[in-house]
Nucleic acid binder design. Structure first.
Lengths: 180, 180
DNA sequence: CCATAAAGCTAATAACATTAGCCACACCTG
DNA sequence: CAGGTGTGGCTAATGTTATTAGCTTTATGG
């Protein structure tokens, strides 16, 4: 699994093949079936494990912090981990298969941490859900576009990220007040 | 190309294979090589064409509008088109290959329209770049998560999108004022 | 009326995933 | 110590997909 995840980070999740993994492990392809139940199963395992890892990172970034402080830590840790592990990050974005218990639980844990971190802004009910979704969408969109090389213009990407986080800070502080 | 794009919307861009396309067109696989230079080339063509189509949609959604009005129209049209054409939308997110003139031009046109629409907020220089990137990131992230079924909780997704756009409106109106 | 370009085809090759079935070795266990 | 068992490797065979080479048919323009 560790080698598979390293591979994913190097070549992208979609390019993780049994052939490439076997090659790296110095083993023939069919041997892998003694450890993993085929390629889709390998992808699902990477998915579940990566979600747990990301949840962990987010958890560590937010303990003992609240509001803007938690928001900043969360955003920074999330982007940092995603940037250093692009293949694993791709995997975390996939919706779990309905029968994949491990991935379902890991997804829930990750979203839960984000939700709790933002709840510090005094949000509840639909407000809290909307805020969590919006925060996740903004950060994920940024990371996805960055990963794919979507920011062509000659402007420091880190700076832009700071601006985006500042905008989120502003919005979250006003969230409950601004009706829609 | 049209059939390929329909196929992409139905099964996802990654699942667009020459085998599947040939089957649909009632033709044998090698015959496709008389029209397209292999699978990667087909993907690049879909990419360029989809970017143009999206640019067109965005253009039509913003003519004669400015500021919040343009923002709302742009966000709604963008999400609407992306939702109705998930496969094509996937294609628009890919960074153009450095030698793919058509896709490069189409990308530029699409960002240009978005950039111009947001320039109405009186932004320039780095501010304008940051705002464009942040807007795109937020909207793209939302669409991507929505497409992948990433919003599990029982809360109306349309409502959340309205909230996200409201947050962007707020941020953009304050953009130049809020230092980072 | 024929030369040619367009668009189809079959056949062959190569990569990858998958399955079946075989083999070697370690490690208990009686 | 002998034998049974499980682990983890292997080869061989099959199916799918992409790709290339080379053939055929048909429409068209000089």
């Amino acid at each position: 699994m560790e080698e598979a995840e390293r591979l994913a980070d190097e070549v992208g999740l979609g390019a993780v093949s049994l052939a490439a993994l076997a090659e790296r492990l110095g083993v023939k392809v069919p041997s892998l079936y003694k450890h993993v139940d085929g390629l889709p199963a390998l992808h699902r395992l990477i998915e579940a494990r990566s979600k747990l890892e990301l949840a962990d990172v987010m958890g560590r970034a937010t303990v003992g912090r609240a509001r803007d402080d938690a928001l900043d830590g969360l955003a920074a840790a999330y982007r940092d981990w995603a940037t250093r592990h692009p293949g694993r990050y791709e995997a975390t974005v996939r919706a779990p298969a309905p029968d994949d218990e491990a991935s379902l639980a890991a997804s829930e844990r990750a979203v839960g941490i984000m939700f709790d971190a933002l709840a510090g802004y005094g949000l509840s009910g639909d407000d809290a859900v909307d805020a969590t979704r919006s925060f996740r969408a903004a950060i994920h969109g940024f990371i996805a576009l960055e990963a794919v090389g979507g920011f062509g213009m000659p402007r420091d990407v880190d700076r832009t990220f700071e601006r985006l986080v500042a905008a989120l800070r502003l919005s979250l502080n006003e969230w409950a007040r601004v009706a829609v």
